[in-house]
């Protein structure tokens, strides 16, 4: 059966509180999920009181500040700090988003930071995305053709054809959408999830691709595709404002249309 309670070794216990510095001007309480695989203990929730006026304006700046001045063992992924690499996706105040483009001023006095939900945790805020990446690889996210490319140039498409893939191709694979999807929580071993399906759609509607039928065949499955019940958390949380739910609906439509 689906599990509605965390397994015993995943239950979160109270953690350490790091008190606010003297004379803080903009006091924020930041509660952060901590898990250390080496110590053999359950995860804990640490509390950091800090002066937001000393940090940059985004949540990622707060995390970097904490790591730099309070607890150097705090572990998280980050790279571009401008919302294009997708590394710092995490659950902030209950919503999956990118720490680097989430302003602290939007969040209130208390900020709660957890790793992306329902994924195995490697350490602290770092989830194990191995399966997520394998799901992306499984939709063959590359151009597949039988016709060879023109000898004197690239494969062409019209402006209108390009515009169709413009948005779906903007996915940065941050995993905010898939890990916000209840259907993905219960069945991520068989359901591909919104991110992989959006990638599949991006290639299905690519005018240059010649494997549309093969791609649709690979998705025609009660679990791989049809575990989507149009909950639309994916579209709700996407930090790039993409619409995976619509892409999945379009795939379902194409599968019906090719039957009659």
């Amino acid at each position: 059966m689906a599990e509605f309670r965390l397994p015993a070794n995943s239950r979160i216990r109270a953690g350490v509180t790091h008190k606010a510095p003297q004379g803080a001007r903009d006091l924020r309480t930041v509660r952060i999920y901590r898990f250390d695989p080496d110590c053999g203990e359950n995860p804990r929730l640490d509390t950091f009181e800090l002066d937001a006026a000393e940090c940059g304006q985004m949540v990622l700046d707060v995390l970097i500040r904490i790591k730099g001045s309070r607890d150097a063992s705090l572990t998280f992924r980050r790279s571009c700090r401008e919302g294009i690499c997708g590394s710092c996706a995490m659950n902030i105040n209950g919503i999956n988003r990118l720490a680097c483009i989430t302003p602290v001023s939007d969040l209130g006095r208390e900020i709660r930071i957890y790793p992306l939900p329902h994924m195995p945790v490697v350490k602290d805020l770092v989830p194990d995305l191995t399966t997520f990446y394998a799901q992306y690889a499984s939709v063959k996210p590359w151009l597949m053709t039988q016709t060879s490319a023109p000898p004197d140039g690239e494969r062409l498409q019209s402006k209108a054809e390009q515009e169709k893939i413009d948005r779906p191709a903007g996915c940065i694979l941050c995993a905010c959408c898939s890990t916000a999807c209840p259907s993905y929580w219960w069945n991520s071993d068989r359901y591909l999830g919104p991110a992989a399906l959006l990638a599949a759609y991006r290639w299905i509607i690519d005018s240059r691709d010649e494997a549309t039928g093969e791609r649709l065949d690979a998705l025609e499955d009660p679990f791989k595709l049809y575990r989507c019940h149009t909950i639309m958390n994916c579209t709700d949380v996407c930090p790039k404002d993409l619409n995976p739910a619509k892409a999945i609906a379009e795939i379902k439509k194409m599968l019906v249309q090719r039957q009659s």
Binding site: D189, D221, Y226
Partner: peptide, 21 residues
């Protein structure tokens, strides 16, 4: 098993369109 092998599983069942429709 490799992660890709687990995800590909037993392939697509070629079912679900009729149920959905």
């Amino acid at each position: 098993r490799t992660p890709l092998a687990s995800v590909l599983g037993q392939g697509a069942a070629k079912e679900g369109v009729r149920h959905w429709w």
